[in-house]
């Protein structure tokens, strides 16, 4: 793959994912999804989030995020915690949020936060600037719960059939969000069947890619 090919692949995937985030989602409107993306950006320099990150436990810091025009306070909390301190999320915390939001909306917020993080992080790394948020598209969310999801041991329901790594089915409860998520991961990392080979035909070898991945994962204190 040439440099131009790779740049086009990445930019195209990011553009497509951004456009999909602006569309009505699974249980959130396009307006709410873009509002969530805006909260991801706010979280990067939010005093409450910074205080929680500095604390021995994020639960030791008093205060909570307020509701915005388009998102309730619990939804804002979910976005901020997932964006800023994912390694210290707990099942008990998630269960409280899910009790208020429903597991579908909770899962969609996690997915939107992750997608927005990928796009914004790439932009910050490569250009030290952020792209304008896309204009939300009107319309209603799909509000469809897939038939093939169930308890597979995660905090939220996921596809019962396991065909690849667990993380690849993590957002299957919210198909529209999953369909924005998977191409982004495929273009930026796994690239179809190449993932299953140990020797990659890229500008960096697989050990080089996995070394960066390991350090990034460790910096985020991610066990998975």
């Amino acid at each position: 793959m040439t440099g131009m090919d790779l740049a086009n692949l990445l930019r195209s995937a990011q553009h497509e994912a951004a456009e999909r985030l602006a569309e009505p989602g699974d249980w959130l409107t396009g307006l709410q999804r873009i509002a969530a993306w805006n909260e991801v950006r706010d979280a990067a320099a939010n005093p409450l989030d910074e205080a929680r990150q500095r604390a021995v436990s994020p639960f030791a810091v008093a205060g909570k995020h307020e509701a915005t025009d388009h998102l309730g306070s619990t939804a804002v909390e979910v976005v901020h915690r997932v964006a800023t301190d994912p390694g210290r999320l707990t099942r008990a915390w998630a269960e409280r949020a899910i009790a208020e939001l429903g597991e579908e909306t909770y899962t969609e917020l996690v997915g939107v936060t992750a997608i927005a993080t990928i796009i914004d992080r790439f932009d910050l790394i490569t250009s030290n600037s952020l792209r304008p948020l896309p204009m939300p598209v009107g319309g209603r969310p799909a509000r469809i719960r897939p038939d093939d999801v169930g308890d597979v041991g995660a905090w939220v329901s996921q596809a019962v059939d396991k065909t690849r790594a667990n993380v690849s089915r993590a957002l299957t409860l919210v198909p529209r969000t999953q369909s924005a998520w998977r191409p982004l991961v495929d273009s930026h990392y796994s690239r179809g069947p190449e993932f299953l080979t140990l020797v990659w035909d890229r500008a960096m070898s697989r050990p080089q890619v996995e070394l960066i991945a390991a350090r990034t994962t460790a910096l985020n204190e991610c066990f998975y």
Binding site: A94, A114, T117, A170, W181, S187, A203, T216, T217, Y224
Partner: peptide
């Protein structure tokens, strides 16, 4: 570019993994 993409995508992967508790 590959390195930038890797860092970016793993920042998303950790959030999905830890946010959904897989």
């Amino acid at each position: 570019d590959e390195a930038s993409a890797t860092v970016a995508v793993f920042n998303g992967l950790v959030r999905v993994a830890d946010g959904t508790g897989i």
